[in-house]
Design a protein around this nucleic acid. Structure first.
Lengths: 218, 218
DNA sequence: CTTCATTTTTAGACAAGGCTAAAAATTAAA
DNA sequence: TTTAATTTTTAGCCTTGTCTAAAAATGAAG
């Protein structure tokens, strides 16, 4: 039905739509896909013909319901495979993204359903991202970025925004992972840095880090 | 390193080499790959340049050691994934081939090693085919085709030659699977058909079926 | 309301893989 | 051994997805 390249475009546009009001710009897609705007134009025209997105010259694109569902299907597979890699094959959470990028394109409805069942119908992947259900719906939780919290607030780490190995390993070194409880001890006004408490340890957290950690406040 | 198409060619040539003396012909590859001879010529020339096979115009091709190892690696992945699908996800042995055809191209050494370990280092796939080890070596067993047995011989079914769903489902209907013990009760001379005993049941087996069942005689 | 920087699209080209039609080599038959 | 049939290769074209360079549209600033 959809080629590997097409699925990757849909996925990228799906993600971009989530933090953009209105249509997604050609340049932003090119940026995310690490490709050239001209290539994006070609592809979105093709995808518009296929009915998975609507496209107006110079005005950006928006996924149709069909497109959104297709993208969610790919993301569902990606996240389920990540759970498999971490829970069953004992990979570390910073090693699974690349492999899941490949596995997400395996075509078999039955496979996804059985994998889902085998893993116990997980709701979140190892990075705390929600796994869309068969119909492409995600149960969204009200989570905040650590950077949005203020002094003395407590919360549980429920996800990461950035998923690079460097960042995940950095968190590991500080024993921060999904489920970690933490408290904001202080927040520096001029540079956005924070001091947080994790268990008995206290850490300095840069603004950049704080903007990439999702917290569920309690 | 190798594209999907290249890997598929290597795999096909690897299989063809096993039942061919001398080089593998262009036409036989085209046949197996369901493609045109002209396309095969192009590809084998490219693969020869890459050093995975030797090719002499009009004389057929032979895998180099590197090529054989690469092909075995792909086959190793295919068969390990088949074990996963059957043992863990409870797929039926006639449903896994197509999915494994996709999974065999996932690139990650670490993934294969962990999968192998997770599955308990299996030696055979669900169809009884041997799984090459990390170095591409297969332990070959002395197995015969059912059609080679004679009256009163007993044996255990250890594999199938043909792997189409139709054939596997046909075997299932007769309760024949890997590990099934059977005895040849009679063999018809003029059409090669046989009567075999499986447990308490007796079955008529056509020549075609007998030529696609591997038996280890006891 | 022009002008200029930015964004986006178009046009033309390229690499991978595949196909068709025609030419060349090989093998088999008479 | 000369011809005929078969196999294999070559030549040229197509599609997918990409790129660069140039043109066109948009929008921000004066």
């Amino acid at each position: 039905m959809f080629s590997l390249a097409e699925e990757n475009y849909l996925k990228a546009i799906y993600h971009l739509e989530q933090d953009t009001k209105g249509g997604v710009s050609t340049n932003s897609i090119a940026d995310k896909m690490d490709t050239k705007p001209s290539s994006v134009t070609d592809m979105v025209q093709k995808l518009a013909d296929k009915g998975v997105l609507s496209y107006k010259k110079y005005k950006g694109t928006t996924l149709t319901t069909k497109g959104r569902k297709t993208a969610a299907g790919v993301i569902r597979k990606h996240r389920l495979w990540e759970v498999f890699l971490v829970d069953k094959l004992k990979f570390h959470w910073d090693e699974v993204h690349e492999i899941a990028e490949q596995l997400e394109h395996i075509k078999s409805e039955e496979l996804v359903n059985r994998l889902d069942k085998y893993l116990g119908h997980p709701d979140f992947d190892p990075h705390g991202d929600p796994i869309p259900d068969k119909n492409g719906n995600v149960k969204k939780t009200e989570k905040k970025l650590l950077s949005e919290l203020t002094k003395k607030q407590k919360g549980v780490c429920v996800g990461v925004k950035e998923t690079s190995s460097e960042f995940l390993q950095y968190l590991d070194k500080r024993n921060i992972t999904i489920g970690t409880k933490l408290t904001v001890l202080g927040k520096e006004f001029f540079d956005g840095s924070m001091i947080i408490q994790v268990g008995r340890d206290q850490f300095f957290i840069s603004k950049k880090t704080a903007e990439n950690l999702y917290i569920q406040t309690t």
